[in-house]
Amino acid sequence: MSLLKGKQLTHYYFNTSNYTKALENISLSVEEGAFISLLGPSGCGKTTLLSILAGIIEPTFGKVTLNEKNVTETQSEMGYMLQQDYLFPWKKIIDNVLIGPKIRKTLDNQTIEKAKQLLKDIGLSSVIDAYPSSLSGGMRQRVALARTLITDPSLLLLDEPFSALDFQTKLKLEDLVSALLKQYHKTSILVTHDIGEAIAMSDQIYVMNANPGRIHQQFEVPIELRQLSPFDARKHAKYQHLFDRIWEELNQLESTSIG
């Protein structure tokens, strides 16, 4: 059974002088435990789609359901991770992690213990009482991950969470996130413009095109790659093969949109 379903999603942005059609007729379904990537050039509406799936934006047309319920009612089952960590600089790391339970008024000693354990799992137990400004970019993004995982969401939405990091940190974090998601058996949707990242991390890749945003093609990641960690997957022969196919596809998309 599909965990998340988006049906014929179309979205417009309006302002006083103009309107843009950001998404057109997008339908997708995500199986439980799957890792999906939305891949496409900037401006193809990836983030808009993710916000709609998260229930933060109401689509102009169409409907999103999570476990057969409308997403706007099921926000407690969603976790959202942004391009940058957006940790609150005036809150300690532990309080940043606990913001979700605090908002939902489910904060208790058990949750606090859970947060401490989670921070320990991702190697940040020493900075629990520090403020975000004293942490490196990679550490901060790990805290943001903990903040997302603490509420135990059944669906994780990742909006280019690695794009603001340096390459080395990014590779390490990909492995960590991938391992954690498998460990907790999470369903995830990743938005990215990095082909390699999409292949290394996901089970299925949706390639999107822009103006208006549409799903152009779907790729299945070979089972051999899925079983490897992102870092090892990058070294597999089939990785390069899929990379070249998607690269071709994106190039073609670009030339048709220019022509």
């Binding site: 933060i56 407690s76 940058q84 913001i99 979700g100 908002i103 939902r104 903040r147």
Partner: peptide, 23 residues
């Protein structure tokens, strides 16, 4: 984006104000 973080947890308008906007 700070508001988006809070909204993803289902924050009310008052919570948005108290946790992000005011500080």
């Amino acid at each position: 984006n700070y508001l988006k973080v809070l909204q993803s947890f289902g924050a009310t308008k008052w919570q948005l104000f108290k946790e992000a906007v005011f500080p």
